[in-house]
Design a protein around this nucleic acid. Sequence first.
DNA 1: CGCATCCCCTGCCTGC
DNA 2: TGCAGGCAGGGGATGC
Length: 292
Amino acid sequence: MPELPEVETVRRGLAPTLVGARFVRVETRQSGLRAPFPPRFAERLKGRRIEALKRRAKYLLAALDGGETLILHLGMSGSFRVEGGGESPIPTTHFPRGKNAAHDHVVFVLDNGARVVYNDPRRFGAMDLVPSEGIDERAPFDALGVEPLSKEFDAARLAALCAGSRAPIKAALIDQKRIAGLGNIYACEALWRARISPLRPAAILADARGRPTAAARALAPAIRAVLEEAVEAGGSTLRDHRQPDGELGYFQHSFAVYDREGAACPRRGCRGIIARVAQGGRSTFHCPACQK
DNA sequence: CGCATCCCCTGCCTGC
DNA sequence: TGCAGGCAGGGGATGC
C-alpha cells in the first residue's frame, strides 16, 4: 500500500510503540522477503533500542542505538500490525483483510510488551540492517530524488528534474530518482489536478532555459497538495488492504481518476470519461477531455 | 545515459 | 463451479 502517504501513515502509527522501546526478540519466518535478510539479522537486533522512526521516500528507517539503522520497505503488499503493549492500540497499520498468518514473516517483540508483526503476501518488501553513518550516501538512498513535501520541492526544482526528458511525464513523476515517494496513484491524481495529460513528455515542464513553465507551476503545488491531503486522510486503503483493523486510510474516496476507468470526470463542467492506459507496464488513469 | 521491458510473488477479479 | 488470464500501491536488473 505504499506510496509516500501510506508509508508516512504507517510511520506515525508505529512510532508510539517503537520509539524508545528495545527489541527483546525478533522472529523471522522466511529466509527473506524480496532479498534474503542480512546475516544474523535477528541476533543483531536483539537488545537494540529504537531511537527514532523516520521516513525517506517509501522507506521507513528505524535508527537504533549502537549506530545501526533498520531499513523497512513495504513493497506492494506489506503491512504492520501492533499486538499488545498497553492501552493505545495502533490502528493505523492497514492490516489486510485476509489476515493470513502464513504471511506473517517477521515478528518484533519489544520490551514494552508489544509485538510488531510484519505481514506481506507478495513478499516484495525488504528489510536491512546497516550502519547509520553515511546512510544517505549509500544505496538506495544516494539515488533518491527530492522529497515532494520538503521546502526544496517547487516548480523550479520540478522543471529542472524534467528538463529535456522525453519520457512521458507520468513515468518521470514516479521515477524515484527524480521525486522520492510519489507512486502510481498520486502521480495520476496530481496530473489530473494540474490538467496535464500523463502522455505528454516530461520536458514540457521546463522552457528552453530550463525554467518552469505554467505546467510546472501548476503541477508542483498539485503534487504537494494531493500528498498532504492524503497524509491527512491516513493514506489510501484499497484492494487487499480494503478492510484494515481500525480502518484509517480513507483518501481512496477522494480519487478523481485512479481506479475510476469509465466513470465521469469529477471536474466541474467536464464531460469527460476517465480512461486507463498502460505506461511502462502500469496503469495510468486520466481524463482525456480536460488533461491536455 | 535515458528509457523500456521483464521479473520478483501471491491474491483477487473477470470472463469463458 | 472451475480455471486461465490479467492485474495490483514497488523496485531492481538488464538491454537497447
